[in-house]
Write a protein that binds this DNA or RNA. Structure first.
Lengths: 344, 344
DNA sequence: AAGGAGCGGGAGAGCGCTTTCCGGTTGTGT
DNA sequence: ACACAACCGGAAAGCGCTCTCCCGCTCCTT
């Protein structure tokens, strides 16, 4: 122990010598591959403990060609467009939480990468190919993100959060946005709202489109063929502005579905400014069940996305893909649920 | 090209053959170490381009004993205590943003690790020692986090975000919390507030203590020997409750300093509920300049922490430490600034 | 009783890279 | 001119691990 303390951490070789067996045997014990005499196993384990041996990841990766962790790529964050992306986006934290929650019990960790420019995307692909990670979890904030294709072209396993705008043979998880919108519509109608509008997200985002069409379809089924809509871009300010526009078009509005909670918070401000009571005069339903929903007064009734579970599933799919490279792309769609609070 | 396409990605050997030089020379060109004849360099670069060579990270790590990335460890997130930790904490996103911003130009990425239990902490230390990362950036949400010491004991380079509760020979970055509190006090006094109180963060957190004492000291210098305080735990609800308590003690309050924006948002709710106008009746100053500050109506006047810069500096310190192992611990303290909006 | 299947263990060949050591060439000082 | 240094490129030794062979043993089969 004293002699090898000088030469850095112990290696397999050291353990083997200590246990009086070969490197191969120690490796087998560690990796639980093939049968090894229980007695020898015991000796080896003792030797491992005695030497304080810790396997060297790089050496293992070199021969197995497995890095043993995955990349969590946030694409298109800082570029022009909606939310601030990574910073301040509570979404990101929840996704990361779900990913880490699934990975950790398996002794893996995500490598965080941002791809907010073409240059950055190139770098990300390059690093993945260097073996930094075995695959990528991709969260695109942009509709036309080229990264999914680039990853596919490089033959790198990848799973997306949200269906890609341009169809591609890639696995993904997503939410049944239309069903969520329907939940909101049903709730507003059940409350007795007659003049209902909606504040949408940026319409170049699929999720926004789905929420809008889902909402309109559901309202149509309830006998409301026309639903006024104002487009926002998922930020609080844009929600406030959109709400004002909606009120200008339909001053007698008594119910509104807002495509995310942050904009709903802005809508609440607009409603208060114009002297309307929520939920007395106007009922408001948000989307996401983010922390913003609880920060609102009145607290927001909202459509919940099970982000953490979705992130965990996304991770599961990726590990599957890494495990079985030939596997065909899969998609898993989650069902949203309505969380009723004070605003509607 | 055709023959080696079959056997996976090209290696140094392939490039060397293509360029008609030895592996060593190619390696030297790639790493820019020692002088290599410019002409040969050109040939090698061409060969690299032709073969589409990408260096294998594991092999490089194995011999250089450098992983080439760092861990971003969030410690004590899910455990009992204040904020939800990672999920939903906008802080985390901003820190991550600052870290990635500094790392990316250097071709590095952070590995995200959560340490929310003793078991998890053990795992984190283990993985770092396996060579997963060369050092750790540690964000502790808990006062008495054992991780800094464990890392130090394992001889792993580490830099903390925020001064550790128990003094330790570790580098860290922090904010001059007292100065921030003074900024708030000066502003409130300048506005003509006479009856001023404060909502503090959890007092087992150093930052909370500093903000409180800083605020009290500054108010004392302005001739206000006593400042009523109510303790919150950095959540919106706790801020609202604390504000109510403060109002009970001092109904004629005309100014309040709240130790973070989220609680300030709650305080705003309490003030509105009790029929007080902000800033007319009561001026409110928050802390952090987080996204919550902008979500408030009126928008929050707040003390800004340059989180991104702090995170970048933290990263710089860590890379320094990795570069020069013997280096002594350093600390860098950032100065806050006041962002004046509508609430005060 | 003899042949073969099955199993547990060791030897050793790499995985792809960096880096020391060496030899040959060219430049420099006296 | 000659010794010496500086410089550049190649050969080769690993870094620590996995995994394929291979060998010797036991045990079952016929």
């Amino acid at each position: 122990m004293s002699d090898r303390a000088a030469k850095g951490s112990p290696t397999l070789e050291d353990v083997a010598r200590e246990a009086g067996v070969s490197r191969a045997t120690v490796s087998r014990v560690i990796n639980g591959i093939r049968n090894v005499d229980p007695e020898i196993q015991q000796v080896v384990r003792q030797a491992i403990a005695d030497t304080g041996y810790i396997p060297n990841r790089a050496a293992r990766t070199l021969v197995t060609r497995r890095a043993g962790d995955v990349a969590l790529v946030v694409s298109g964050a800082g570029e022009e467009g909606a939310g601030a992306g990574l910073p301040g986006d509570p979404f990101f934290g929840r996704i990361a939480g779900g990913v880490v929650g699934y990975l950790r019990p398996r002794g893996m960790y995500p490598v965080l990468m941002l791809a907010d420019s073409d240059e950055a995307r190139r770098q990300v692909v390059g690093h993945l190919r260097q073996g930094h990670a075995d695959g990528a979890l991709l969260v695109s904030t942009h509709a036309a993100d080229p990264l999914p294709r680039q990853l596919a072209a490089a033959g790198l396993p990848a799973v997306l959060f949200a269906r890609p705008a341009r169809p591609a043979p890639v696995s993904f998880v997503d939410l049944a946005h239309q069903d969520g919108a329907r939940l909101a519509a049903d709730h507003l109608v059940a409350r007795g709202c007659h003049r209902v509008g909606t504040v949408t997200g940026p319409l170049d985002v699929l999720a926004s489109q789905d929420r809008l069409t889902g909402f309109r379809d559901a309202m149509a089924r309830h006998g409301h063929p026309y639903v006024p809509a104002a487009e926002g871009n998922f930020t609080l300010d844009s929600g406030e502005a959109a709400m004002h526009r909606l009120l200008a078009e339909e001053p007698a509005l008594d119910g509104v579905f807002v495509a995310n909670d942050l904009m709903a918070q802005g809508a609440l401000h607009a409603l208060r400014e114009t002297g309307r009571d929520v939920p007395g005069d106007v009922a408001v339903v948000g989307f996401d069940d983010s922390s913003a929903a609880l920060a609102c007064r009145p607290a927001l009734t909202t459509v919940r996305q099970p982000i953490e579970e979705m992130a965990a599933e996304m991770t599961r799919l990726l590990l599957d893909l890494i495990e079985t490279p030939g596997r065909r792309p899969t998609s898993v769609i989650f069902e949203p649920s309505l969380v009723v609070r004070q605003s509607a």
